[in-house]
Amino acid sequence: MDLQQLKTFLEVCQTRHFGHAASNLYLTQSAVSFRIRQLESQLGAALFVRHRNNLQLTAAGERFRQHAESIITRWEQARLDVASQQDRAPTLSLASTTAIWQAWLGPALLDLHDELADRHWQTETLTPDQISRRLLERSLDLAILPVPLKVDELNSQLLTSLPLVLITPGGVTAEQALEHNFVHLDWAPNLPSSSQPEPLPTASLRTSDLSLAKQWITRNNGAAVLPESLLQHEQVSWQGWPELTRTELPLYLIHHASHPDLANLAPVIDYLLQR
C-alpha cells in the first residue's frame, strides 16, 4: 500500500466514477482500476460495488475511507512539520466550515498574520465531524465552530459572537423576500445551532456557502439571516431588518487539551480571544 493508491481511492470516493477520477489524476482509467484492485487485494475486502450504474462504497470501503483520509492528512502534516523545522518557522493548521471562513475567520487570519508574521499556516475547510476526528488525532492544531465540542480531550473557548440579522437587497421588503426566496445558511452542517431563529419560512435554498447565499438573494430578491457587518462593509446595497430577526452566532476556538506545542499556540489563541 502506498500514498498514490490511497489518493486514487479517495478520488474515486469523491467522484464515484473511475473515468472522472482518472481524468482528475491525469491517469488512464485502467491505471485507476488497477490501483483499486491492488488495494482490495491487500485489504482482503471489496471497497466499491456498482448499483444501478452508480459506484457505491461498501461497508468496508466506508470504514477504510476514514483511515485513508487520516493517513494522507498525517503524511501532509509530517511533510509540513519537517519543512517548517528546516525553515525554522512553525506551521499551524487551522480549520472551520465554509460559512465561518467566509464570514469571520478569513479576515481574522489576515489580521493574525500581520501580528504573527513568523508563522506559516495551513488552512482547511472541514465538516464538524472531520474537525473533531482530526483534533483528537492531533493532526489539526486549531478549529473554529459555532458550538463547543463536548469531548473530554478537547478544549473549547468562546471567542466571540457574530451578530446576525435578516437581510434583503435594498428596495425589497422583508415580506416580499420571505414569501418565496428565503435562504437558510448552514454554519456547521449536522450540528445543532440556535443561530437560525424560528419561525421562518421554508427555505428555497439551504447552503453552507455564504457567497452563494448572497448571490441567490441578490438575483431573486430574497432574504437570509446573515452577518450584520455586511450592511457596512459591502458595496452591494443591503437592507437589514433587525426588528424582525436578530440573533448572534457564537464562535468557539477548539484545540486538543494536551496539544504537544501549546507554547506555540498560546500567542495565536491570545490574539483571537482579544480580537
Rank of each mutant, 00 (worst) to 15 (best):
L142V: 09
L154Q: 12
L166P: 02
Q122G: 06
L136C: 10
D129V: 02
Q130A: 15
Q176E: 07
T123P: 00
L164T: 13
S139A: 14
L158V: 03
T173S: 15
N155E: 15
Q157T: 13
L145R: 12
T127F: 14
R133H: 12
R134A: 09
L158T: 01
P128D: 03
N155R: 15
R134G: 04
P169L: 01
L136N: 13
L135D: 04
T123K: 06
D141T: 14
A174F: 07
L166I: 09
L166D: 07
T125V: 14
L166G: 07
H120S: 15
L136G: 05
G170I: 01
L154M: 11
P163T: 10
T127P: 12
R133D: 08
S156V: 07
L142D: 04
Q157Y: 00
K150F: 12
K150R: 15
V172L: 03
A174P: 01
L145V: 06
L178I: 06
Q130L: 13
H120R: 15
Q176G: 03
P128R: 02
V151L: 10
L162C: 03
L159A: 08
Q122T: 08
V165G: 00
T125H: 03
V151K: 11
P148M: 10
I167S: 11
T125G: 01
D118L: 01
L142Q: 02
T160P: 05
E124H: 11
T160A: 02
T168D: 11
L159K: 06
H120N: 15
G170H: 07
D118R: 01
P148V: 09
A143Q: 04
R138C: 13
S139G: 02
A143T: 05
P163Q: 06
G170F: 04
G171Q: 04
R133T: 04
T173K: 06
L178T: 06
A177W: 12
L142A: 01
L135P: 05
A143H: 10
I144Y: 15
E124K: 13
D141Q: 14
V165E: 08
V165I: 06
W121L: 14
D129Q: 14
P128L: 00
P146Y: 05
L159S: 07
Q130P: 07
R119C: 09
Q176M: 04
E137Y: 00
T125P: 01
L145T: 08
R119T: 04
Q122I: 05
S161D: 11
T168W: 08
L140F: 12
E153I: 03
L158M: 05
P128M: 00
L178Y: 08
R119W: 08
Q122S: 13
V147M: 15
D118Y: 05
E153S: 15
D141A: 10
N155Y: 10
R133I: 00
L145I: 05
